[in-house]
Amino acid sequence: MKALELKGLGKTYATGRVALGGIDLSVEDGDFFALLGPNGAGKSTTIGIITSLVRKSTGTVKVYGVDIDEDFEAAKAQLGVVPQEFNFSMFESVLEIVLNQAGFYGLPRRQALVHAEECLRQVELWDNRHERSRTLSGGMKRRLMIARALVHQPRLLILDEPTAGVDIEVRRLMWDFLSELNRRGTTVILTTHYLEEAERLCRNIAIIDHGQIVENTTMKELLAKLRAETFVLDLKTPLQAAPSHPGFPLTLVDSTTLEAVVERGHPLNELFAFLGSQGIEVLSMRNKSNRLEELFMNLVTDHNRDGKAHV
């Protein structure tokens, strides 16, 4: 069953700016789906339309088969949303915020308390439940928004850059939490700027740019399309200049750091054999950047150049 189905979804603002140019997208029930794109690509507009904060210009949106034009209330009841910006009252306590949200969805206070405790414990905020939300740290505020979005037990959770601005420890805690949530059956759609996050968490991915879907596939297939990877090699002894090899473009970053671009399918043994023959000893090696980040940049750059997606 499809958790979300978008057909020809378009949004043109009153200024004439086209934010979405008629996109088609579907997310299966139980999926962990990534929606990636640069700033202004149309990710938040898409989420805004699904959650009713933005009015669509064209197309249809179905949440678990329910068309938002026919029964928006029924569609919204199945959704939980974690927006990009903090959007709770700074004067309410953590518990009040979560309880009120449950109430807005129609959950009576007694049941809401049970759910609120469960959600706040899951995100490790139960001990802070009586604190005013404005006193929380950035990471705690993010976790509060997740607890609030889950209190009515939605089938589909949409997170718009949920880990923006949080430290790596909190981010990893949230990754584990979201993975567990998905494992227990909640469909998750994630937009993020941390591509490593999408690579680690998501099974399927769509890349959106200038209001168009430029790629929509599985994470595995997408990563398989990578043309080349860049490795950073830490050397034992300093070099004056980078050695030259026709198969591996090599660049000297500093006297003891060498970068090597390796085409997919090209064995690394060959690189090490060459370096060995030059008397260069390698102490350690790592990927220069996230693989998905490279691919993402290729896709977006190519799309901007000629309006088509290339990898």
Binding site: T51, F72, K76, E85, N87, S89, Q101, F104, Y105, G106
Partner: peptide, 17 residues
């Protein structure tokens, strides 16, 4: 105030006529 702080969205995203 709810518009300014954006917490009106708590109500808008919920299934309330």
């Amino acid at each position: 105030g709810a518009k300014f702080q954006r917490h009106i969205e708590e109500i808008l995203v919920a299934p309330i006529p």
